[in-house]
Design a protein around this nucleic acid. Structure first.
Length: 895
RNA sequence: GGGCGCUUAGCUCAGCCGGUCCAGAGCGCCGCCCUUACAAGGCGGAGGUCGGAGGUUCGAAUCCUCCAGCGCCCACCA
């Protein structure tokens, strides 16, 4: 690494720097958390990406936010653990490998269970670490030594322990209920895994004849006519007088001929449709309940693949359910049973993995009883122990928990945690064994046992993530030290799947919340507002962005757009446009440092020199920036973290401070002044490099290492994080420089307005100079000359002159620049008039307020005082502007 | 059916538990500038009745009500 800054290119090239620094950090072990040293640790667990995943922008955003928080806390000196890992993602991963097999013309059944699972493991071994490596490319400071996988031995033991404990507590049970069945994936799903979408469909009205009076029919309506083949009853509301005489009688199911008892049930809405409901207990959750209350039969009319089963009349057997729908409708029509058909919009559930329409279906599955687990999770939230950012997600969490339903956890897959339940092969014995260790034989009859063939829902391992990854159920040092964690950063789409369930598991098994703050980041969308997705082809590959613009540019752009709870739009068709904010900022920083570094003194310049106004000003601004940046981090307002550093570095440090001190650094004002500037520059540069480090870790570290008095093995990674008190606050200096800036802008404005040659030096006459400006001129005379290209500054002069540019600053200071050769008096007068009008308008508004008795009595004193000051300032501006107008309109004026 | 969010400059968005906002940023646009850190830059500028209508208040982009458009979540809509 070289300190020869004169060799640095004017364009920042991140490629070589980033890889080298990341390797250094890894080798130094900075990201590894030491449990023995952690008395106040800061802990984050990563939302484990699927092992099948390739890094996409959603990860980019989510993981960068985590890295910013983690790096900040680490810099603050807390022993910080960011625990990484991946999720085995049952359905998704199984699908990937099954698709591979399909290309070879095979199915998993051809391989058999054992060989198939081996094959998935082989896939995971080969590709499973890919996403982890990609996280390194964007700079994530995870503790890679603690990387976990949800199918690890340790995590598997945790899963099993939890299943057994819940079973023993009576919270896990097996039963026949209506679940969501995905016919493509061939498995049951939880309620959360069925995504409901509104869809245009039809409502078919069908006439069912009565058994004892076939001339009389009752009309029922359905959106899924194929399921009528499984009807086993009809229901009406008990108070519905229209049908009171039907209750207890029997109808005949068209096409099938089955006898259907007509029952009275509260669930029926007499207002909807005809007020008569067909009851299909095996294919509808409500019908199932009605059927159970009235002891109706259940007839499952479909196979696992959603074809019509042998339970239906011959002509329909083997038909796909949607073919069967058409066939049933046609047959009904032929028999004259179809009364009418209407268009109907209703919501249809689809598998969240493959999009196939799910079939509500009666099935024997394992469930977790959720209400007892939800109660403490609700209490913790209501008592304020759990905070959501943004807050509104708390209400969504609360609502879901209040209405929680039991969780179907068995999946008819092969890839996942096998359900630890064995059944005695002897039906007469019927013993069911649930055990932590695999049993050899039936404890009752000593006969052979068969393990339940199903695996557990992937989320049944994910919900244990905050403690299973730390060693639970073993009482490890890690668990003792790092649980509970602090902040969870994730997407709102898995609030129920994951976040709420982790809270429940944490409280149930650790007796403590798994985290105290939940940050929900937004969705990354394209420039048309569409979610980025593979199928739309509108995704952006974060690694391509890293290659082209650097990880820092990627991170800065993401963080700057990550306003709390809002989505982020990025143009996938023009990466340059999308990421130039970050790229340009990195370049700006690079060049600012390129300029500053050679001016810094190797020994830090000895003791503290006599600081000048500009020095005190930038130090004071630095102090404010430390404060605002820290406050933003503390409140998870990521975009404010980025923008507060950005504005300071670019808008204050580069645009003003560097320009103000250029002359001094060149020695124009003597050694003491040079030393003061160099000393300040050194401190401020380091200050903002530290503030920048969480968001842009690479460039900040690279530049930090180039500071003249920094050891080659030093690092920003371990902090310290700056404190506002490290930099003296200086209000008067801030005010003075603010007025100087206003003057500079006014002069530049005049120059631009009249198209004055940029090289031409101006002569400036000032009158009614404010105290602040007087102070600024006293010490920054040369700064003014440099910033506004001024060669002569006169005080209290040229009040009566007309041919030039006129201005009045907010402080009331009058500015005049003689420009007889270029000035157009009419135009100048118009300019002043316009300004005068604006000021008068403001003054009127201000006076209106101050004349209002209510304002004076009801508004806080400081607000009134501020308004008075504003009035005074406006009065002065008005007076001085009027004077200028009079001068410009004076005798001999052109109009 | 219930709930929530959004609507601010041409575009993308900050600000929003009221006064420091004389409403900001980035991009885009217009003009000038290759001024020895940076043209991935500098300087100046134009551009907004803060979705609409009421209301509360001394004071509203910010709070309340209603309306319109967009989006999201939940729900046993046969």
């Amino acid at each position: 690494m070289t300190d020869r800054t004169d060799q640095l290119d004017t364009r920042y090239d991140p490629t070589e720097i980033e890889g080298r620094l990341y390797r250094r950090w890894l080798e130094a072990g900075y990201f590894h958390a030491d449990a023995s040293k952690a008395d106040d640790p800061y802990v984050v667990v990563i939302p484990p990406p699927n092992v099948t995943a390739a890094l996409h922008m959603g990860h980019g955003l989510n993981d960068t936010i985590q890295d910013v928080l983690v790096r900040w806390r680490r810099m603050q000196g807390r022993e910080t653990l960011w625990l990484p890992g991946t999720d085995h993602a049952g359905i998704a991963t199984q699908n990937v490998v099954e698709r591979q097999l399909a290309e070879e013309g095979l199915t998993r059944w051809d391989l058999g269970r054992e060989a198939f699972v081996e094959r998935v493991w082989a896939w995971v071994d080969e590709y499973g670490s890919r996403i982890i490596e990609q996280l390194e490319a964007i700079g994530c400071s995870c503790d890679w030594e603690r990387t976990r996988f949800t199918l690890d031995e340790g995590l598997s033991r945790a899963v099993r322990e939890v299943f057994v404990r819940l079973y023993e507590k009576g919270l896990v049970y097996r039963g026949q209920y209506i679940i969501n069945w995905c016919p493509r994936c061939g498995t049951a799903l939880s309620n959360e895994e069925a995504e409901h979408r509104e869809q245009a469909g039809k409502l078919w009205h069908i006439a069912y004849p009565l058994e004892d009076d076939p001339s009389r029919t009752v009309v029922v309506a359905t959106t899924r006519p194929e399921t009528m083949l499984g009807d086993t009853g009809l229901a009406v509301h008990p108070d519905d007088e229209r049908y009171a005489d039907l209750v207890g009688r029997t109808a005949i199911l068209p096409l099938v001929g089955r006898r259907l008892p007509i029952v009275a049930d509260e669930h029926v809405d007499p207002e909807f449709g005809s007020g008569v409901v067909k009851v299909t207990p095996a294919h509808d959750p409500n019908d199932f309940e009605i059927g159970r209350r009235h002891e109706l039969e259940t007839v499952d009319v479909m196979t696992d693949g959603a074809r019509m089963s042998d339970a239906v009349p011959e002509p329909f057997r083997g038909l796909d359910r949607f073919e069967a729908r058409d066939a049933v409708v046609a047959a009904l029509e032929e028999e004259g049973r179809l009364v009418r058909t209407e268009e109907h919009v209703h919501s249809v559930g689809r598998c969240y993995r493959c999009g196939t329409v799910v079939e509500p279906r009666l099935s024997l599955q394992w469930f977790v009883k959720m209400e007892p687990l939800a109660r403490p999770a609700l209490r913790a939230y209501r008592e304020g122990e759990l905070d959501f950012h943004p807050e509104r997600y708390g209400q969504i969490y609360e609502h879901w928990l209040e209405n929680i339903r039991d969780w179907c956890i068995s999946r008819q897959l092969w890839w996942g945690h096998r359900i630890p339940v064995w059944y005695c092969r002897d039906e007469a014995c019927g013993r069911e064994v649930v055990a932590r260790e695999d049993p050899d034989a039936c404890p009752d009859c000593d006969g052979p046992l068969d393990q339940d063939p199903d695996v557990l829902d992937t989320w049944f391992s994910s919900w244990l993530w905050p403690f299973s990854t730390l060693g639970w159920p073993e009482e490890t040092e890690d668990l003792e030290t790092f649980y509970p964690t602090d902040t969870l950063v994730t997407g709102a789409d898995i609030l129920f799947f994951w976040v709420a369930r982790m809270v429940m598991a944490g409280l149930e098994f650790m007796d403590d919340l798994p985290f105290t703050d939940v940050v929900l980041n937004g969705t990354v969308r394209d420039h048309q507002g569409r979610r980025m997705s593979k199928s739309l082809g509108n995704g952006i590959d974060p690694l391509e962005v890293v290659d082209r613009f650097g990880a820092d540019a990627l991170r800065f752009t993401l963080i700057r757009g990550a306003a709390l709870g809002t989505d982020l739009q990025l143009n996938h068709e023009d990466l340059g446009a999308a990421f130039q904010v970050g790229r340009n900022f990195a370049n700006k920083i690079w060049n600012a440092a390129r300029f500053a570094l050679p001016h810094l003194d190797a020994d830090g310049g000895g003791g503290e020199p006599e600081l000048e106004l500009a020095d005190r000003w930038i130090l004071s601004r630095m102090s404010s920036t430390v404060e605002s940046t820290t406050a933003a981090l503390d409140a998870f307002r990521m975009h404010e973290v980025a923008s507060s550093v950005y504005e300071f570095v670019w808008g204050e440090f580069c645009d003003w401070y560097l320009e103000l001190v250029k002359g001094r650094l060149a020695g124009e004002r003597g050694e003491e002044s040079r030393r003061a500037a160099a000393w300040t520059l050194r401190r401020v540069t380091e200050g903002w490099l530290r503030l920048l480090h969480p968001v842009m870790p690479f460039i900040s570290e690279a530049l930090y290492l180039r500071l003249p008095d920094v050891a080659p093995d030093a690092t920003l990674v371990l902090g310290p994080w700056p404190d506002p008190d490290d930099f003296p606050s200086d209000r008067p200096a801030e005010e003075a420089v603010a007025e100087l800036q206003e003057l500079v802008v006014a002069l530049r404005n005049a120059r631009s307005e009249y198209n004055i040659d940029p090289g031409r030096e101006l002569e400036v006459h000032l009158a009614s100079i404010s105290d602040g400006l007087a102070r600024a001129l006293g010490s920054e005379d040369e700064g003014l000359r440099r910033l506004a290209r001024v060669d002569r500054i006169e005080r209290d002069g040229a009040r009566g002159e007309r041919a030039g540019a006129h201005a009045v600053l907010r402080s009331g200071t009058e500015v005049f620049v003689p420009l007889a050769d270029v000035i157009d008096l009419d135009r100048e007068r118009a300019r002043i008039e316009e300004e005068l009008e604006r000021v008068e308008g403001l003054l009127r508004a201000s006076r209106r307020k101050l004349e209002n008795e209510d304002f004076l009595t009801k508004a806080p004193e400081e607000v009134v005082e501020r308004e008075r000051e504003k009035e005074r300032s406006l009065e002065e501006q008005k007076e001085h502007l009027s004077r200028k107008r009079d001068v410009l309109s004076g005798a001999g004026g052109s109009s």
